[in-house]
Computed example of a mutant assay.
Amino acid sequence: MTSPLPGGPVTGDGKHLRILSTSDLAGLDISLDQVVATVEGAYRTLHAGRSDNPRKLTVKPPDGHSVAYAMLGRDGSREVVAIKTSYKHGVDRGRDDQHYYTALTIYDDVTGLPVAMMDCSRIGSLRTPAVSALLARECAAPAARTALVVGTGTQGRLALPFLLTTLPRLDRLMLFGTHPDGVAAVRARLAEHFPDRDVDIVTDWRAAAGDADVVIATAGPRTPAAIEAAHLKPGALSILVGHGLAPSALGAADRVVATSEAQMNITGTDMADADGNLRPVDAELAPVIAGTAAGRRSPEERVFAYNSGLVVTDIALGHHFAQLAIAQGLGTEVALWR
């Protein structure tokens, strides 16, 4: 039996678990600047050695019809421990035929009590484009003015608003997408956050890539786009989130930055060369943000960045949302350990 919570402490009594649903989290207000600052703080704490972000675990069947991940981490600034699970079924099918579930469970490492278990979809939809925006801030050429987003799914819809948050100097925005509803959603989200800006819808992704200073590839596996290194101009930054970049964009890059080289070696195998090898990473994002490593070394370098996401960023945002939700009395308490 469950009962709505009227509010209360951040942690419970050790017998109950607070569940925060999709609808509980949907109405919580957070600005793009707050998301970027929260995610950046998680990277800085990780670089300082105060947080732990072990490599994710992955399982999938031989035919590849599904994939599941488990990610455990500890946030040293908030002193919380959390585990994120992610499961997608129908990877080999179209978007409408897929099932995707992701959840985050947080524990207070001071009191030893549970904080909450929550749907992680909104957290992921904010965290990932915020990380891409940080990669762009650190790795784009100083004169970057044009950006191209490939894909109009969950990760593509906020890519441009977050990119403008960290790179306000961009004056031309382009989008390649094959789903009309997705294109409309991208435009709507851009208008919501930057009503004075618009995006050019392009059909020739090769030509658009050649014009772009920053390319963010967020598309699904069925995208026709496969941007090669030869399509990218000198000084371009290409950021891989989903699909849309060919392996040569990595293999021929002058510099490679990743959120995590270990995770790239697990989830980035589709970017391997003809011999099955992945180009080594030159720097990870945490030390780049901290200023101990360079995102790029010259304006002419072609930089490839791999955005796989780190669970410490999910924990930071998830804990922030949990605090907001609890303060508003949201959630349902389940007597899980009785």
Rank of each mutant, 00 (worst) to 15 (best):
G220D: 12
T38I: 13
A246M: 03
A325D: 01
A322P: 07
L5N: 14
V199K: 14
Q155V: 07
V186T: 08
E261L: 00
P234R: 11
N277C: 03
I315P: 04
K15F: 14
H99D: 12
L104M: 01
I289K: 01
G49W: 07
R279A: 11
C120S: 15
V35C: 07
L28K: 01
R338K: 05
A283T: 09
A253C: 06
R222A: 15
T128P: 06
L28M: 03
P299H: 03
R74M: 05
V199T: 11
G220M: 10
R172C: 02
A133F: 02
R55A: 14
D96S: 15
L167N: 09
K88I: 15
P161D: 03
V303K: 05
M271V: 04
K233Q: 13
L158M: 15
A229I: 12
E284L: 00
T267Y: 09
T45N: 15
L72P: 14
R169P: 00
H243R: 15
L237M: 11
P224Y: 03
Q34S: 15
F162R: 01
D96K: 14
S66I: 02
T259I: 05
S51Q: 13
A68V: 04
G12P: 02
S125D: 13
G112K: 03
N53Y: 04
R169D: 13
L240T: 11
N53S: 15
S248D: 04
N265V: 02
H65L: 07
A212S: 09
G14Y: 13
K60T: 08
A286Y: 06
S238E: 05
E192W: 01
P221M: 05
P142W: 07
G268T: 06
V186P: 12
A143G: 11
K233M: 11
R172F: 06
L232W: 10
D204F: 04
S86W: 02
V214Q: 07
L20I: 08
D254I: 09
G8C: 12
L25H: 00
S66F: 06
G331L: 09
P114T: 07
A252L: 15
A82L: 13
D273Q: 13
N53T: 12
A327L: 02
G151R: 04
A37H: 02
L46I: 07
M71A: 07
R222S: 14
G177M: 03
L237W: 11
A37P: 01
I239E: 12
D97R: 14
A212H: 09
P195T: 02
D24G: 04
G276A: 07
T154N: 05
R172P: 08
I30N: 00
V80F: 04
P287C: 08
C139R: 08
A185T: 14
A283C: 10
A236R: 09
A26I: 01
H193R: 06
A141V: 03
A207T: 15
V10W: 13
L173G: 08
E138L: 09
W337K: 02
A116L: 02
G94Q: 14
V241G: 11
P114M: 08
T259R: 04
I123S: 07
